[in-house]
Each structure stands twice: as structure tokens, then as C-alpha cells.
């Protein structure tokens, strides 16, 4: 078990290293650099920048060094001082710009995962146990629908109906009185009151997917010999279902936890943009559109980190749940 965890840990570190390279490539990807961009922006505003001004900006942000130098400087800053670089647009260290947005994104992701599993597992079990009943068909249909509606559209629809029929907007993260207040329980509760809409929207697709997987696995497991054998030993009713097939069907569900988290984090920016939740998502979009690449890169790193840590935790969870994995036996 310890060996298993150490291997996974090592893989995780290597992955993080590669992620940093990919992120840096993306940072470097846009043609022209920030100085050019700024010059263009100024020009369109009617001002002019001299060649010297452009040169000075390059000098100031180290834009005239070689790619390798810049990568290692960037990485070294992160590792040694937690310095992710400077946001050109806000002219402040990236970490200060991001601030508590990381907390918001984490809360949103965790809440979404919680919703997903709380809803999906009971429904999945129900659908498998009551196969081909009205309830099963209804859930299957809703599931199909949940998989086909793009999340941003669902968010828009909710916005539309809430504005049209309740005259309140569901967007944002805090009521006005908590907007700039320091953290307190009341503020946290206020955040939950707002954030749940986004969490539900984000949870829909994952829930539908997990219901389908769970239903299929359970139907498969239910007819396996070890269940019949347990029945022949006198185990019956709920105990039989919950202890054997449901328990076994939980494993693939646990193993997808990492991917699920990845999907949630992947899908959250677009929903956050629509529902104007001030987490990392909208900031990421604006930083991309204005080519504020250190900010964008840092946000991408944090999103990847969340996924990687999530995958690591789900690997460990799976090892706890499945002795075959713990003991290193190929299934």
C-alpha cells in the first residue's frame, strides 16, 4: 500500500512538471508579446509608443531573454518564492490578482462533486433495481437530456427563468452586504446560497453519466455468481444488494472521481462566466482574451493542480476500496 502511494506520488510530481512545461508553451504561444499588444492598444486609443518605450517594457518584464531562460526563471520564482509572475494587465503579482478566487473555485468544485454523487448514486441504484419501470425510464430520459444540454445553456436558461419569474438574479456569489466583508460564517452561508446554482448546473452532466455507469455495472453485477452464492447462503433483501453488487459497483464510480473532478474544473469557467461567479473562470477568460499570459498560465496551473490532486486522492480511495488494486493484482 505504501509502495502504491509512493508510486502514485512520484507520478504526480512528474505530471506536475510536464504540466508546467505545457502551460509555459501556452504562455508563449500568442504571436507578438505583451509589449506589442500594449503598443497596438495604445495606438488604437490614439496614443503612440516609441520604439524605446516598447524596448523598455520588454526589458522590464524580461521579454527579451531566451525561452529557456524565461522558463527557468519563471519556475524558479514559483518554487523558491511562490512568485508566479506579474499580471501585465493589472500590473500586480499574479497571486494577488487571483486572491480568494482559488477558494471559490475549490468550493464550487467540491460542492459540485458532492451534488453529483449524492444525486447519482441513489438514482443509479434505484434504476438498476427497478429496471424497465416508469421511474427507470424517467431517469434515463432526464439523463439523456442532462447529457445533451451544454452547461452554459442550462445556466442561461436558469438565469432567464429566475429573472423573468422571480425577478431576482441568481448570478454572482455574494449579496451586496457581504461583497467586501471579511470571511465569517454568515458570509460563507451567503456564498453557499449563491453558489449552489452553479454547482447544480455543473453537476448535471456528471450526474447523468454516473447514473448510466452505475446502472449498467449494477445490472451486470447483480446477475453474477457471487451474488447468487450469497443468496444461497441465506443473505437476502437489502443486505444482499447493498453488501455485494452495490459495493462492487462502487469501485468504478470511485475510480472515476478524478476524471469527474477534472470534468467539473474543465467545465466550470464557462458556467462561471455566464453566472458571473467571480472565481478563476471569468478571470481566466479575460486574461486569455487580453493575452495576459502569466495570469492565464497560473490559473491553468492551478486548475491542473486541482485535477491532479483529485486524481491522486481518487487513486488512493480506490486502493482502499478494492483489495485487488491494493495488493497489486491485475483484474
Amino acid at each position: 500500500m505504501i509502495k502504491y502511494i509512493l508510486t502514485k506520488l512520484a507520478t504526480m510530481l512528474v505530471t506536475i512538471f510536464f504540466v508546467s512545461i505545457v502551460v509555459f508553451i501556452i504562455i508563449e504561444l500568442p504571436p507578438g508579446d505583451f509589449a506589442d499588444n500594449m503598443a497596438a492598444e495604445r495606438a488604437s486609443a490614439g496614443e503612440t509608443m516609441t520604439q524605446d518605450d516598447v524596448f523598455n517594457i520588454r526589458e522590464r518584464y524580461g521579454l527579451n531573454q531566451s525561452v529557456y531562460e524565461r522558463y527557468f526563471k519563471w519556475i524558479w520564482g514559483i518554487v523558491s518564492r511562490g512568485d508566479f509572475g506579474t499580471s501585465f494587465r493589472y500590473n500586480r503579482p499574479v497571486m494577488m490578482v487571483i486572491g480568494e478566487r482559488i477558494t471559490f473555485t475549490t468550493c464550487l468544485a467540491l460542492l459540485t462533486i458532492l451534488f453529483t454523487y449524492l444525486i447519482a448514486i441513489p438514482i443509479g441504484i434505484y434504476s438498476a433495481m427497478r429496471q424497465y419501470t416508469l421511474g427507470d425510464y424517467a431517469f434515463t430520459f432526464v439523463g439523456y437530456l442532462g447529457l445533451s444540454i451544454p452547461s452554459f445553456l442550462l445556466a442561461l436558461l436558469l438565469l432567464y427563468f429566475s429573472t423573468k419569474y422571480t425577478n431576482t438574479t441568481i448570478g454572482g456569489l455574494f449579496s451586496p452586504e457581504f461583497q467586501n466583508a471579511p470571511w465569517s460564517l454568515a458570509r460563507f452561508v451567503d456564498m453557499l446560497k449563491h453558489i449552489w446554482v452553479a454547482a447544480v448546473v455543473l453537476a448535471v452532466a456528471g450526474t447523468a453519466k454516473i447514473i448510466r455507469t452505475l446502472r449498467a455495472t449494477l445490472l451486470d453485477e447483480k446477475s453474477k455468481l457471487y451474488v447468487t452464492a450469497a443468496k444461497a447462503r441465506g443473505v437476502s433483501g437489502k443486505a444482499l444488494l447493498l453488501k455485494y453488487p452495490v459495493r462492487v459497483a462502487m469501485n468504478p464510480i470511485a475510480s472515476t472521481l478524478g476524471w469527474e473532478l477534472s470534468a467539473v474544473i474543465s467545465g466550470s469557467p464557462i458556467v462561471a462566466v455566464v453566472l458571473s461567479i467571480p472565481d478563476m473562470g471569468p478571470l481566466y477568460l479575460t486574461s486569455l482574451l487580453s493575452q495576459d499570459m502569466y495570469l492565464a498560465g497560473t490559473l491553468l496551473i492551478f486548475m491542473s493542480l486541482m485535477t491532479i490532486i483529485g486524481t491522486f486522492l481518487s487513486d488512493i480511495l480506490l486502493a482502499i476500496m478494492d483489495p485487488r488494486i491494493r495488493l497489486g493484482i491485475k483484474i
Partner: peptide, 21 residues
Amino acid sequence: TEFIRSIPTYPLWMGVAAAMP
């Protein structure tokens, strides 16, 4: 493949797409 999966898909390709001049 595992590595690519560990970077959130949409944000990654949003980054690439944003780089289109």
C-alpha cells in the same frame, strides 16, 4: 495520454484557441 487527461480539457484548449491571432 494520462498526462494530457490531467490538464482540464476546456481551459487547455481555450488557451490554445486564444492564441489564434
